[in-house]
Design a protein around this nucleic acid. Structure first.
Length: 591
RNA sequence: CGGGAUGUGGCGCAGCCUGGGUAGCGCACCUGAAUGGGGUUCAGGGGGUCGCUGGUUCAAAUCCAGUCAUCCCGACCA
């Protein structure tokens, strides 16, 4: 049936952007139940509220409401990038393989890189990131130090063929990213560019209304030597962050360091071979011998890049961190040896591998320096050594930080106990140095006539993930609670008795006033019962709700409700628009 | 990639194992009526090659094989 509001126009602003929209014709399909595939709250709510729909694993449609919020994130990001002097460009998503071969990432990037051939059998990739393309562009166009510094950004769809896409927009394969790249004459200048982006990111996530932390991070596949991640704090986050409450150091668990407690073993004690039947794992062995797990030296056999065997030693009460180990191997991927490989290389079953007399490269965690000696495999089934002493019974090639930090471990900087919380990585800033400019030959001429490689930085924000993170942080049992800055519309306008002429008239008038003031309004013009409209309004989570009913109208009033704190107030019909404008303004200003 | 599970109308599910025989329920959708401040009620209606392919059988959603898709866990505890 045609709503009596069907004549109410969709309101556009002077740029043609939609200010006011009618619910009935907006493709905002709300659901009572979320699809079974949705696991976390943001994914469920974004589907139920009609923001997104899945097309394939890790690939999503944005519906009108979802796109509006996405655009808000985009606008905030663009504004801060512009403010900090970055210039917007748009690079192609499809890139020739040659560039990736030049940078070395054609081999290095792995199966996450989506590769394909064109009709001429030429290799292409769908860009997961754009260091190669941007460096190539800048290499061609920038010659002189006079052109620097330069910071270029784009907002564009990327594709990474993730091992395991999940959680809706949180870890999609196709996703929208803002990526920026800075080019400077030297490290000091690059540091300034980095600081500027760091500050821009602080602003971006503050304006998005997120609770976040900037943490020291590992550089990962992008490469480079220094980076911070911007983490939105949420229990459903995929990353763990170690926080020091005392010195306020925050670091990704892959980067966090601690001086974990352990009791040093004796020195100059005799090496004893002991029968240890049925002790395949550390806890069993500790129980059998009546020793702390910390005094057991775990010997883990890895194959660097699946080839060269490497023995990694670590105290029994800590876990090895593969990312740290990879760094210790100069970027070679450590692959845990299979039982068969271990037995072939070391001559004993797993669990009894020994560093004593081992002919392979040995890397030991820093903690072993403090441990001095401990229990180690004896290189024979069902036997372990007691008092195996570092530097006496076996030599290590290097002591490196290999252990994963555990909650309560003393901070490596100040000694205070670390806490571990979970976070969602929404932004990442890197100092790249010259690795890409050197590989691709991007140089500039300095004032002294010398040619040098450009010093680069790169800076990314996941837009969809930022949106999902916001929902993850801002919701209740009834639905989403958008911060004003990201809400698809600022005001929900709910006429309760759509057939009542007075209600209809007041609604149309208020819709006009609000949109004339520049407010964004979603008018629920559906001829539905009040309960359903309230439920949907809560689900969509627009920050302000205006209810117009026969009852309130009889007193010349409308009802205003705040979605976040659920406070209700009555407002005279002729003042409601002004009052709402003030509220929106107040809720938009940074807290 | 390894392990586990699931695939039945737009969404959520039952039916399968354990008796192979006209495909069901709730929500949503359409029509009508009533209702009208927190997912309203009644009546009527439309919509499904039961993921796909093959096999067994007189007969397959159901049994068998393969395949595709989706989700979960893991891919580090020697």
């Amino acid at each position: 049936m045609t709503s009596i509001f069907s004549s109410a126009p969709i309101r556009l602003d002077q740029h043609g952007e939609v200010l006011g929209q009618r619910f009935s014709s907006y493709l905002a399909p709300t659901l009572k139940e979320a699809p079974a595939e949705a696991e976390i709250v943001s994914h469920k709510l974004m589907i139920r509220a009609g923001l997104i729909r899945r097309l394939a694993a890790g690939i999503y449609n944005y519906l009108p409401l979802g796109l509006r919020s996405l655009r808000k994130v985009e606008r905030i990001i663009r504004g801060e990038m512009n403010r900090f002097g970055a210039r917007e460009v748009l690079l192609p998503a499809v890139q020739p393989a040659e560039l990736w071969k030049q940078s070395g990432r054609w081999e290095k990037y792995g199966p996450e890189l989506l590769r394909f051939k064109d009709r001429h059998e030429r290799d292409f990739v769908y860009g997961p990131t754009h260091e190669e393309v941007i460096t190539d562009l800048v290499k061609r166009e920038v010659r002189s130090f006079r052109d620097l510094p330069l910071n270029l950004f784009q907002i564009q769809t990327k594709f990474r063929d993730e091992i395991r896409p999940r959680f809706g927009l949180m870890r999609g394969r196709e996703f929208i990213m803002k990526d920026a790249y800075s080019f400077d004459v030297d490290d000091a200048a690059a540091e300034l560019s980095y600081q500027a982006m760091y500050e821009a990111y602080q602003n971006i996530f503050k304006r998005c209304g997120l609770k976040f932390a900037a943490v020291e991070a590992h550089s990962g596949a992008i490469g480079g030597n220094y980076s911070h991640e911007f983490m939105v704090l949420a229990d459903s986050g995929e990353d763990a962050i170690a926080f020091c409450p005392a010195c306020s150091r925050a670091a990704n668990l892959e980067k966090a360091t601690s001086v974990y407690p352990l009791t040093p073993g004796p020195t100059n004690a005799p090496l004893i071979k002991k029968h240890t039947p049925n002790c395949r794992h550390v806890p069993e062995l500790a129980r059998f011998l009546g020793v702390e797990e910390a005094t057991i030296i775990k010997s883990l056999l890895f194959l660097a890049n699946g080839q060269e065997p490497v023995l990694a030693l670590i105290p029994g009460h800590r876990e090895i961190n593969l990312v740290k180990l990879k760094d210790a191997l100069d970027g070679q991927e450590p692959v845990l040896a299979s039982p068969e490989q271990a037995e072939k290389i070391m001559g004993v079953p797993m669990g009894f591998v020994t560093p004593v007399g081992a002919k392979v490269k040995i890397l030991a965690d820093l903690g072993l320096q403090r441990l001095k000696s401990g229990v180690a495999g004896a290189g024979e089934k069902d036997y372990h050594y007691l008092n195996a002493e570092v530097n006496r019974d076996f030599q290590v090639h290097a002591f490196m930080d290999l252990a994963t930090v555990a909650p309560g471990d003393p901070c490596a900087k100040c000694g205070a106990p670390l806490t571990i919380r979970r976070g969602i990585e929404v932004g990442h800033v890197f100092k790249l140095g010259t690795m890409y400019s050197q590989a691709l030959g991007a140089t500039f001429m300095g004032p002294d006539g010398q040619e040098s490689p450009l010093v680069m930085g790169c800076y990314g924000v996941g837009l969809g993930r930022t949106l999902a993170a916001s929902v993850e942080q801002n919701h209740d049992a009834d639905g989403i609670i958008w911060p004003m800055a990201l809400a698809p519309f600022q005001v929900a306008l709910l006429p309760l008795q759509t057939q009542n002429p007075a209600v209809a008239e007041a609604t149309a008038s208020l819709f006009d006033q609000l949109t004339s003031l520049g407010l964004e309004v979603l008018l629920d013009d559906r001829d539905e019962r009040p309960g359903l409209k309230f439920k949907d309004a809560d689900l969509l989570g627009l920050p302000l709700r205006v209810t117009i009913s026969e009852k309130s109208l009889a007193k010349g009033e409308v009802e205003l409700k705040n979605r976040a704190d659920r406070t209700v107030s009555m407002s005279p019909l002729n003042q409601a628009a002004q009052q709402l404008q003030d509220l929106v303004k107040a809720m938009l200003s940074p807290m």
